[in-house]
Computed example of a mutant assay.
Amino acid sequence: MQRLIGELNAGDQAKPDIIHLQQTPLLNRGICLDFKLLEAAKKAGVPVLHTVHNVLPHDSGDHLRNIYGQLYNGVDHLICHDITAAHRLNEEFSIPLKKISVIGHGPLFAPAHAPKEWEIHNARRLLNLPENASIVLWQGIHAPYKGVDVLLEAWKLALAQGLQDVVPSPLLLIAGSGPKDFEATIRLAAQHLGGTVRADLRYIETRELPLYYTAADILAYPYRAITTSGALLTGLTYAKPIIASRLPAFEGYLDDRGNAILVEPGNAEQLGMAILCLLKSHAAANIGNVGGEAVCYLQLKSAALKNTSRYISWGQIGNDTVAVYQRCVASSRR
Rank of each mutant, 00 (worst) to 15 (best):
103 I>Q: 05
104 G>R: 13
105 H>D: 14
106 G>Y: 04
107 P>H: 00
108 L>A: 14
108 L>H: 04
108 L>F: 03
109 F>K: 03
109 F>Y: 15
109 F>P: 03
110 A>C: 09
110 A>R: 12
111 P>A: 06
111 P>I: 02
111 P>W: 01
112 A>T: 13
113 H>D: 03
114 A>Y: 05
115 P>V: 06
115 P>D: 08
116 K>C: 06
117 E>H: 11
120 I>G: 04
123 A>H: 01
126 L>K: 14
126 L>S: 11
126 L>W: 08
127 L>W: 11
127 L>R: 14
128 N>L: 11
129 L>I: 09
129 L>P: 09
130 P>E: 02
130 P>G: 13
131 E>K: 14
131 E>G: 10
131 E>R: 15
131 E>F: 03
133 A>G: 07
133 A>F: 08
134 S>M: 03
134 S>Q: 14
135 I>W: 02
136 V>E: 00
136 V>F: 08
136 V>W: 03
137 L>N: 06
138 W>N: 06
138 W>K: 04
138 W>T: 02
138 W>R: 01
140 G>I: 07
140 G>K: 00
140 G>F: 00
141 I>K: 12
141 I>F: 14
142 H>G: 06
143 A>R: 15
143 A>I: 01
143 A>S: 12
143 A>C: 05
144 P>G: 05
144 P>I: 01
144 P>H: 01
